[in-house]
Every structure is written in structure tokens, then in C-alpha cells.
Simulated scan of single mutants.
Amino acid sequence: MSHAQNLSEKGITLPDASAPAANYVPYVRVGNTLYVSGQISRNDDGLITGVLGDDMSVEEGAAAAQTCALQLLAQVRAACDGDIDRMVRVVKLTGFVNSTKDFTQQPQVINGCSDFLVETLGDAGRHARSAVSAGALPLGVAVEIEGIFEIK
């Protein structure tokens, strides 16, 4: 089954790809590798802000990370001229978690993105990953995730 069919079958609609907020591009293609700039946690209501270990739970953080997954896939679709099925696989994610210095559950937060990609894309969603703490993230968002994808 295609990625587009999987998304549709699960009732998932990708958002429009966000425009860059500063002096960078949303993605760069080098051969069959697509590097997607960091996507921040946001939903239809706006930015998802908070600090893990302070005013946000791990579950809320994981939900915020899932919104980053949607944003990443939206950028991949945009880079592939609207055809998400040109994505071969997710190669690597780097997740940044806005958290207190003693918070240690960054992997569980970024699982919100990882789990979504595997549930949605199957083996093509399995990836290498880093999950790190950040003392602050742009606009106070809870999570930012960048990705590397193989495309055809």
C-alpha cells in the first residue's frame, strides 16, 4: 500500500508545508537524500509551547512531537512535488526537547514522532535517531525535530 493510501486510510491529512521563519530553506535535496529543516510543534490552534519537566507532561510532549512528524511529512511531500509516495524511507531524526536540566525522558517524548512514523509508514518509517534536551527552543515550543529522508 502506498504512503498516501496509508495516511488516507488512517484519516490523516497532512498540513501545508510551512514557510521558513528565518534565513534558511525548508529542505535541501542532495541526490536521493532529502534533509528537512527542524519542524516545530504546532497544530491547528497554533504553537505548542511548554517546558518538559516543568509545565508539560511526557504524554503532552509526545503529542507535540507527533505534530512535528506531520510537519516533516508535509515538507517531504512539498519537496517531492506533492507526491508523498516518492519517499522511500525515513533515515534519521534528531529531536530537540525544551526541558529542564534534570529532565531525562527526551526519548519518550520523541517517541511521539517515531511511533507515528512507524505506525503510519511501516518499515519505511523505521529510522536512526537522536533525542536531546534543549534549554530553550524557538518561540518557546516544546519540541523541534529535523529529519533525513531517502526519496526517489
Rank of each mutant, 00 (worst) to 15 (best):
Q105P: 01
Y24V: 13
L73P: 05
V36F: 10
K92H: 14
A64P: 04
I145C: 10
A131C: 15
V97Q: 05
K152H: 11
C113I: 07
P15D: 10
A136W: 03
R86N: 11
D102S: 14
D16T: 12
L137Y: 02
D55M: 10
I40H: 11
D115I: 10
Y27Q: 11
V90A: 13
N43A: 10
V25A: 15
D45N: 13
V30I: 14
E60R: 11
A78R: 14
G95N: 03
Y24L: 13
L93C: 07
N111P: 00
I40V: 10
S57G: 01
V76E: 01
A21G: 01
M56E: 06
R86V: 08
I145G: 06
C113L: 08
Q105F: 08
V141T: 14
P138R: 00
I84M: 10
V30Y: 11
F96M: 13
I148L: 14
N43G: 06
I48M: 08
A74Y: 03
A142G: 09
T49C: 13
C113H: 10
T100R: 05
G135L: 13
E60S: 13
A142N: 00
L139S: 09
K101G: 04
G53H: 11
I151K: 01
Q105C: 09
Y27N: 12
Q71H: 13
P107Q: 08
G140A: 04
L137I: 09
N98Y: 07
V58K: 07
K152R: 15
G125H: 01
V141W: 02
R77S: 00
